[in-house]
Each structure stands twice: as C-alpha cells, then as structure tokens.
Design a protein around this nucleic acid. Sequence first.
DNA 1: TTGTAAGCGTTATCAG
DNA 2: CTGATAACGCTTACAA
Lengths: 343, 343
Amino acid sequence: MTMTIRDVARRAGVSVATVSRALNRSGPVREETRRRVEAAVRALRYRPNSTARSLITRRTRMLGVLLPDLYGEFFSELIRGLDEAAQAGGYHLLVSSSHDNASDLEAALHGMHGRVDGLVVMAPKVKAEVLEDLLPGNVPVVLLNSPAGERPRDSLRIDGFGGARAVACHLAAHGHARIGIINGPAENFDAQERLRGYRAGLAEAGLAPDEALEVAGDFTGSGGYAGATALLALARRPTAIFAANDAMAVGALSALRAAGLAVPEEMALAGFDDVSSAQYMIPPLTTVRGRIWDLGARSVARLAEAMAAGAAREQQPELLPATLMARRSCGCAPGVREAGERG
Amino acid sequence: MTMTIRDVARRAGVSVATVSRALNRSGPVREETRRRVEAAVRALRYRPNSTARSLITRRTRMLGVLLPDLYGEFFSELIRGLDEAAQAGGYHLLVSSSHDNASDLEAALHGMHGRVDGLVVMAPKVKAEVLEDLLPGNVPVVLLNSPAGERPRDSLRIDGFGGARAVACHLAAHGHARIGIINGPAENFDAQERLRGYRAGLAEAGLAPDEALEVAGDFTGSGGYAGATALLALARRPTAIFAANDAMAVGALSALRAAGLAVPEEMALAGFDDVSSAQYMIPPLTTVRGRIWDLGARSVARLAEAMAAGAAREQQPELLPATLMARRSCGCAPGVREAGERG
DNA sequence: TTGTAAGCGTTATCAG
DNA sequence: CTGATAACGCTTACAA
C-alpha cells in the first residue's frame, strides 16, 4: 500500500542505495540518475519512513519539552518560541505538561527515553540535586528557570532577580518607604528569585527590610486578592505593593478596589510578567517584561549547539534580561511613556 | 553501550522472542522464565527501543497536535487536557503551533507524516473544503472548532453560537435594546459562530438587527479598544457591548473608562472565554465559559475510539456546552451569584 | 558513479 | 512453552 524506497528504486531502475544517496545527497549520484529518482518519488508520492530512518541514524529529529503546571500566556509564548526555532532547524516538539513534582517529572522523562534528541526541562519546584539525578545523560538538556546545581548546566532563565529589584527601586524612587510584596509559592524558584530581587532593591534604596511586609501568595488571582487583603490588615500598612506576578496583581487590584483605595494615589501597585492585558488594566499595570519567545527560541539554539558539539562541550547558564514597564499603577504619569528601564 | 533485547536474552538465558513475549505479555511464558527476564531487565537497566518497536508495529504512540496562532489561556488549557488524556492512554503529544493559513498547515502535516498515530487539528481560518484536501487519509483526525465540510468528520467544538446567543439574550433581558458587538476576524470560524449567535439572540429577544452596531475586531486588546471607540462614535450609540472575546473586552473596558463612561451603569459589557482574570476585572466581567480542558481530553478520547475501530467507523461532530457567567459588567448585582445559565 | 548486503532493535510467524 | 528466523524500511560500508 504505502510506498517504500524499494518501490522508488524499482521504478527509477536503480538500487535502493542510489535512491537513498540521491534523496539525502549523502554520496555521488549522476545528475541524470537523480532526476529519474526524483521523478519516481513524485510519481509514487513516496515519503521516507522516518521511523526506519531513525532506527539506523539514531536520531529522531524530535525535541522533548517538559513543563510544569503553567498557566496562560507564558506557556503559549514559550511553545511558540520553541516551535518556531525547532521548525527552522527541522525538529519537532514532543510536549508534556503538568510536571510539578519530581516523580511526575521522572515518569515523563522515562516516557521520552529514546524518542528525543534533546530535552528542554522546566521544573521550578524541583531542587537542583534531585533534578540532577533525574536527568538523562545520553541526550543534551537545557534547563529553564531552574536553580543552578553543583555542576554547570546548560540553562536559561529570565532575570527575575533583576526585574524584581528594578520594581522595588522604582517604587522607592516614587517615594515609597513601606513596600509590601505578595510572594509566589515558597518552593518555586522564580518566586525565590523575585523575592531576592525585591529585598535587594529595598536594600539598594536604603530601605530597612520588614518581614511583616512579605506575605505569601500562589501566583493566582485569588492568592493576590488574599495577599493584598492581608497587607491591608496590617497595623502599619505599606503604601505600595509588588505582586510577584500579574495574575496576583489583578487579584490585588480587585481587593484594593473593594477596600475603596485608589490606585496609585492611595496604594501603588506593580506586577511581574507583563501579560497582554496588563496595559489595559485600570490603571494600566506597572510590571516586568521577560522575552518569553526568546527563551524558547534560545533553548532550541542551545540544544542545537550541544548536539552539534557532542558531549565534550562546556555547559553554562545564560541570563535573559527582564524589562521594567512603568505604567500608571505605580504612580507614573499617564501617556505613551512605557519605560525601557532595564532590570 | 546501550542495552538491547539481545543482551537481556543472553543474560536471562532465553531467546529474544521469549523476552519480547514476557515484556509485552504477548504470548505464553512460564512464570519462572518471566521472573528471570524481569531480573535481567532490571540488572541491565534495559529500556526497549521505541523506534525499533514502531518500525515493526507501525504505531508510534504519538498524537500530532496542530494549532493556529493561539494566545493565552486557551492554548495552555487545551494542551493540558490533551496531554493528560494522552498520557493516560500511553500516548505522547507532537505539538506544532502557528498554522493560521493553509500552506503552513500543509507543511506541518507533511512534517508529521508517519510520525503520529492520530491528529488533532485546529484551523479556524481554513475553509472546510481546503482542509478536507489537506488532511491525510491514513490516520484518524479530529477537528477542533472548524467549520463542517461536506462529509461528516470527527470534530469537536465549543458552542460559540449558543454562548453568544445567551449573552445577547441576557443583555436584552437587562433592558438593552441597542446592543453592539465587537467582532473577531471575519475569516475566523469561532468569530463567525459568535456573530451568528449574537444575531440569533437579538432576534429571539425581538430586537431588530442593525449592521451599524457590528464593528470589526481582531481578538486582541487593542482591537477591543478600537472597536469600543468606534461604537462610541456612533450617532446612535449602543447601551451595551458584547466583545467576541475577553481580550477585546479588556481593551473595550479601557476605552470606556477613557471616555468617562461607567460600566455597567452607562454601558454594559460582556466578553467571551472567561479568562482567569475576568472575575477580577473592575467590574467583574460577564462572559462565557467553555470547558477547554474537556475539549482537549475529548479530542484524545475520540482519536482513541477511531484508532480502535479502524477505518470503517462513522464519524460525527460533537458540541461542547458554553456557560454564561453573569457578573457585574452586564448590570447583574454584585455578590456570589455566578450564574449557571446554559448557552 | 552504482550495486550488494549487512545491519539498526524489535515483533511475529512457525516449528519444535 | 520456547527458539530460530524473517521481516519492518532505511542507511552505509564495501565492492565493483
């Protein structure tokens, strides 16, 4: 039924080896012979069987992508970046999501064994040492937004630390002395980095740290609502709130509105991520933008390098910049200004 | 280096055939023999080579997923549904995004040839006949939110028509007689369905259609902003606006705010999709919720059925309900009420 | 420049 | 119940 290389060979009056060479340009083939082969290919609508090819070449031209429980735009933007770069390089993406913990991740990695030529792994909740044990040694791996372990790894991350620090500094520059933060999940690496950046920013601005101003959150809208409510209940309220992501900022804004507080006049607010609706919020949300598409595309590029260079290549982390987008919610003037202050 | 079935056979003192039978339970194997095999497998850390297996079984245990340029939560939620169902069935997902037009889609389908056992295709901008030509005949296909062609196809969609109709009826029930709509891209099937539903809802409520109240949009925030602005510029303004998706509703809300109009008092507003921030908007956005996760999971289930039944199975479309979520922005009272009015 | 033939690691058929 | 052995469709020495 379905055509094989033998059918093409027969039809073109050559051997299968010649067909293979002609199609892959992997050896000398007389021009006229190649024409005959190509004609046969078209006539028979022949499509090489990628499975058979993989079996012998030991390459699948597929890249595995393991992601945690991601919501919203980050996910789609990342996949888009990965996919476009992969396609450009002739690769396909084997995607698996919802791996928050080590055992899920292990199962997923297990399932991808032998199916992929490289792996992009994002597991912000899994500790470095644990991760190191889980990762396979036979294919190159790029880590996304993961903590650095003992040995240097190919890894990429968006500069959460720098972005958060920029937010804190910016808020301080607006004259705020009491700046609260609604944190992400404690075990989440991104959340840790943003918290670290927030603290660094305060220190840089000469502000004393105050643990009461750091409340727990979970990166969801309702978590933001609860976090803001908790902050408002404080005896000594903050005058500005930094939500560790935009989803929480949305919830926080809702809570502030419910409490009758004007933003930014009575309470400044900032988020992180720059989701597409951020600029349409009322007031437009000051936040931090990471280049997520780039994160995906770079991951594939790094994998490609690693695959080309073989095992004896030195691995290293890479930091992608995050940009402060100063809008109304922090107290910045309305208008076109959408600042390019680097984090 | 890497272990093969022969190594296991040698170590267990049996033939490769027996190892295969033991591992796949595909034939009789004495209990004690099986133990020996399994011990050898563990000792050698043997993992069957899925490529070789695929070559002979002619199944890859992979499902192709082709998506258009999707943004935001729809994408991630869909993948999650697909992935969880796929994993449960022992399948992997080969994902490819950004296929809005026919030729991109064709290239992507081309690339997946032979790599997948089934296909989930979403291409709301590609016409039914064109799609029919492109789709392969050798593997089962499930269409997502696509127009129905001549012959019955396995397809799934969220009831955009019903959801939009419910919105229009609901707005009319609030006493609005002039209800505007900010449309999605004209060539987009979802947009067409929602427009159709809007018109049907008006008719049902006894309202005369008015083309001036139907303005173009593009499913983005800025499109919503522009659409609302256009609606406000009308000599006879609407008193309510239905944005064909939430992203546009966010932009519209921003435009209304800029024009100094109170929502819902001076202008009612509704969206479609129920993105997670909708309930935290100010005011909370009335919108329509589709069960996107279910859409993904059902797709895989349908594919599984099709693969099990073989070619001689009758195909048919399936409609997933969309639910009106009545919140403040349409004029509904504040409070817990989050209506379960079915679309 | 081309052809022959030996695999790649499994599964499946058919004797034993 | 078990073992040889022939596929599966392709690439790649090695010969010619």
